[in-house]
C-alpha cells in the first residue's frame, strides 16, 4: 500500500533531477543545522551581516558564472577588485567632496572593471591564450599595478558621502545586498531569456557547433569576460565604500577562489555549457554561512580554508555523479 504510493513519487523525484536542486537542499540543511548549532545565527543582525559579506564575492561570482558557462575561467578578479578600488578612491579624492564625486567614482569603477575585463577578453580571444593562463598573468599584473600606484599604502577616501553606499540600508537590508539581488535577477534574465545567454551556453557546450550555427563565438566569449569585469567594478566600489578605504595588498585577496567556489557549489559545470544564476546566489550564500558558522562556533580561522575546500570538493563530486 505504502509502496504503491511511494514508487510514483520516487519516479517523479528522479525526473526532477535531484542534482539540479542539490544546492538548494544543501542550503536548507545548512540553515537548519546552523540555527540549532548557534543561537546567534538566526538573529537579524547576524543574517544581514552574512548577506552583506556574501554580496561582495557574490556579485563577482554572478559575472564569473557567465565566464565559466562559456567554458572559461577568470583568476584575475581578486586583483582587479583591488586595482579598481584603488583607482576609484584616487578618482573620488581627485574630484572633490560631494555626491557628484561619488557618482563619478561609481561610474568610473564600473567602467574600469569593464575595461579590465575587456583586456582579459582581448588577450584570450584575439591572442588565443587559454583563459586560465591569460588571467593568471593579469592577476599578477593587476595586483602589481595596484601596489605600484598606491605605493603599497592604504588608500583612504576623503569624501564624506562615499561610505553611505556600502554602509546604507533600505528596509533594514544593506544596499550591497539589494544590488547583489538586483544584479542576480538581471543576470538571470540575461542568461535564460536573451539570445546572448543562449549563445553563451552554446559556446560553452560545443564551440564548434556554435560557430557552425553562425554564432560569433569569439565575440560571445569576449563579452563574458567583460561582464565579469563589470561585476568586479560594482563589487570593488561597494567594498571600498564599506571600508571607506582600500588596502592594496589585501583587498580582494582570494576572491577569485570564493567566486569560483560559489559558481561550482551552485551547480554550474566547470567544463562549461550549463549553469544557473540562482545556483550561484545559493552557492555564495552557502559559503557565507559556512564562514559565519565557523566564526560563531569558535573554530580556528586557520581551519576555515580546509572546510571551504572540502565543501567545494563535495559539490564537484555531487555534480560529477549527476553527469554520469
Amino acid at each position: 500500500m505504502i509502496m504503491s504510493q511511494l514508487s510514483p513519487m520516487i519516479t517523479r523525484m528522479k525526473r526532477l533531477n535531484i542534482a539540479a536542486y542539490a544546492p538548494f537542499i544543501a542550503l536548507l540543511l545548512l540553515i537548519v543545522f546552523s540555527s540549532i548549532a548557534s543561537e546567534h545565527f538566526l538573529m537579524p543582525r547576524n543574517i544581514t551581516n552574512v548577506l552583506r559579506q556574501v554580496s561582495y564575492t557574490g556579485i563577482i561570482a554572478l559575472g564569473m558564472t557567465f565566464v565559466i558557462i562559456a567554458g572559461g575561467i577568470d583568476l584575475s578578479v581578486g586583483s582587479m577588485v583591488a586595482l579598481v578600488g584603488v583607482l576609484a578612491i584616487m578618482i573620488i579624492n581627485g574630484v572633490g567632496d560631494g555626491w557628484w564625486a561619488v557618482a563619478m567614482a561609481v561610474a568610473s569603477a564600473i567602467a574600469l572593471g569593464g575595461v579590465f575585463g575587456a583586456i582579459n577578453g582581448l588577450i584570450i580571444t584575439r591572442g588565443k591564450v587559454a583563459s586560465f593562463i591569460a588571467t593568471l598573468a593579469t592577476m599578477s599584473i593587476f595586483r602589481s599595478m595596484t601596489l605600484y600606484i598606491s605605493d603599497a599604502g592604504e588608500m583612504v577616501s576623503e569624501n564624506q558621502h562615499f561610505s553611505d553606499i556600502g554602509g546604507g540600508y533600505l528596509w533594514a537590508i544593506p544596499y550591497p545586498v539589494w544590488i547583489f539581488l538586483l544584479l542576480a535577477v538581471a543576470y538571470h534574465i540575461l542568461l535564460k531569456h536573451s539570445a546572448f545567454g543562449r549563445h553563451v551556453c552554446a559556446v560553452g557546450s560545443n564551440s564548434k557547433v556554435a560557430s557552425y550555427s553562425a554564432i560569433k563565438v569569439r565575440w560571445v566569449y569576449f563579452l563574458t569576460f567583460m561582464i565579469a569585469g563589470l561585476s568586479v567594478g560594482v563589487s570593488a566600489v561597494l567594498l571600498a565604500s564599506r571600508l571607506n578605504s582600500v588596502s592594496p595588498g589585501d583587498a580582494g585577496l582570494f576572491y577569485e577562489l570564493d567566486a569560483i567556489a560559489a559558481v561550482v557549489i551552485g551547480g554550474t559545470a566547470l567544463s562549461g555549457g550549463k549553469g544557473t544564476i540562482w545556483g550561484t546566489v545559493i552557492g555564495a550564500i552557502i559559503l557565507g554561512i559556512i564562514n559565519n558558522m565557523l566564526n560563531l562556533m569558535g573554530i580556528s580561522p586557520y581551519l576555515q580554508g580546509m572546510v571551504k575546500g572540502l565543501v567545494i570538493l563535495i559539490a564537484v563530486l555531487v555534480q560529477f555523479k549527476g553527469d554520469r
Binding site: H193, S194, A195, R198, A202, S205, K208, V209, Y212, I215
Partner: peptide
C-alpha cells in the same frame, strides 16, 4: 561535432541559428 549541441533540448537546438526571429526583447 559540428551540428548539434548534445546537452540542449530539441527547441533550443532547432532555433539556434534562427534565434533572432524568436526574440522580442526576450526570447
Amino acid at each position: 561535432g559540428k551540428g548539434l549541441i548534445m546537452n540542449f533540448d530539441i527547441p533550443k537546438n532547432i532555433t539556434l541559428i534562427s534565434l533572432s526571429s524568436y526574440v522580442r526583447g526576450l526570447i
